[in-house]
Design a protein around this nucleic acid. Sequence first.
DNA 1: CGTACAATTGAGAATCCTCAAGAGCAGTGG
DNA 2: CCACTGCTCTTGAGGATTCTCAATTGTACG
Lengths: 249, 249
Amino acid sequence: MSEIYSRKVTCQNCKLADLCLPFGLQQTEVAELSTIVKERRPLQLDDLLYWQGDNCQSLYAIKSGSFRSFITNADGEEQTIGFYLPGEVMGLDSLQHGRFTCSAMALETATVCEVPLSNLNPLCAKIPRLQNQFMRIMGKEIASDHDKILLLGHRSAKERLATFLLMLSQRYAALGFSSTVFNLTMSRLHIANFLGLTIETVSRQLSYLSQLGVITVKQRGIQINNLDLLKTIVNACPAHCTADVWAAS
Amino acid sequence: MSEIYSRKVTCQNCKLADLCLPFGLQQTEVAELSTIVKERRPLQLDDLLYWQGDNCQSLYAIKSGSFRSFITNADGEEQTIGFYLPGEVMGLDSLQHGRFTCSAMALETATVCEVPLSNLNPLCAKIPRLQNQFMRIMGKEIASDHDKILLLGHRSAKERLATFLLMLSQRYAALGFSSTVFNLTMSRLHIANFLGLTIETVSRQLSYLSQLGVITVKQRGIQINNLDLLKTIVNACPAHCTADVWAAS
DNA sequence: CGTACAATTGAGAATCCTCAAGAGCAGTGG
DNA sequence: CCACTGCTCTTGAGGATTCTCAATTGTACG
């Protein structure tokens, strides 16, 4: 571990560059961006990256590991808003008033690149390509949030689970990982909390998908056996469809 | 009508400036911004401002009226993502790939200011305050979407309706309109579609809130009689609470 | 090996949906 | 002015999905 962190890590040699702020930039521009990245910070499981209400000085790009963002309501209940994987940028919700509107917690050992806003803004003005990429990242966050709104507003428990797995699959694929075999870094409770379901319902739907043969579940381990069928369930499964209908296809 | 549109409309004399892109800018900067606003376009009920999949050349700031944004799925079903009021900017979801990921339709007679991206980006680089305000607007969109995710994932039908009305109330208040008396510009169907409910449930919950005396409903007309109680329902109403509990407070 | 925690499975209850009918309102035409 | 039509909205009854409560199983860790 220490060997990894002693080696100088820059945006130039980062494998995630194409998903992150450097995408589309020229070599010299990436180098310039790299100079403003303040710190590569390691975190452990359940470490808080930032807390709801904190003053936001920086955005955070995930270099490794995964995070959960959540809002704590007046009763102290945590309500999960989303999950973040490497290459994704966290903290964009704070740009409205300069304060984080949610908290971010590490789901496993993780590292983040801290990008101070006081440096990023001038650099965006100087490098139009960076400005464009930052816009793309914000647009992606908004489009992704719209997908979540669709998911929560218009899908049954079965579809929510299928969609959740498919989204993870696609995000892992974009990272160069397997799209069919991966480990969930979040607990059933976090999944349930995110999908607006109970852990029992999450467990039941996972069992159901497992019985169909679409996936194999072994604790946090997920294997997708039939990606096409999973997509079919995501797109067209009406609330009243039965197991038999889908088993037949 | 023609009289209004013949008069030169600029960002400088726009009453919504403080909610929109000009906020925080100096006089000369507002004037400069105003020159890139291409067109003030009037629309009628059910007119499409843009269509899902269209190439996005411009963002649209609402000057008057209201809009509904929605995604059409493979089966042709419309799924409402959100509602937009004057001073709000539409089209931010398209910044990821340059194409609109949803459609926008006028809920009533409306006018929008078209802001070409090809002009806005260079101007942001030139005017840091505009850059900052644009960031704030995008942050607001993201924070607002997070609120919707919370609403749909963690709230009962009763709370969803109460929250929906409270959010509208606050947005109207920000516009200088009454926060307690307003007309819904969207049908029950659109509300239901947005909240992930059926129109029957929406109607029932409105009746319920009406019986409690919290609101008075007359078709599209809404009057909030007890804003505090409405907020109480929004914040703390567990799924199993009964009418009596709330009537007592 | 025992404890603590996470996850699964089952049975009954509550919420919300589906289907159906009726009421209210706007617009049209006689 | 009134009846008719079409539409939106409301209200009711029964059914389906999901939640709640409870017990069991499985896994990790000391």
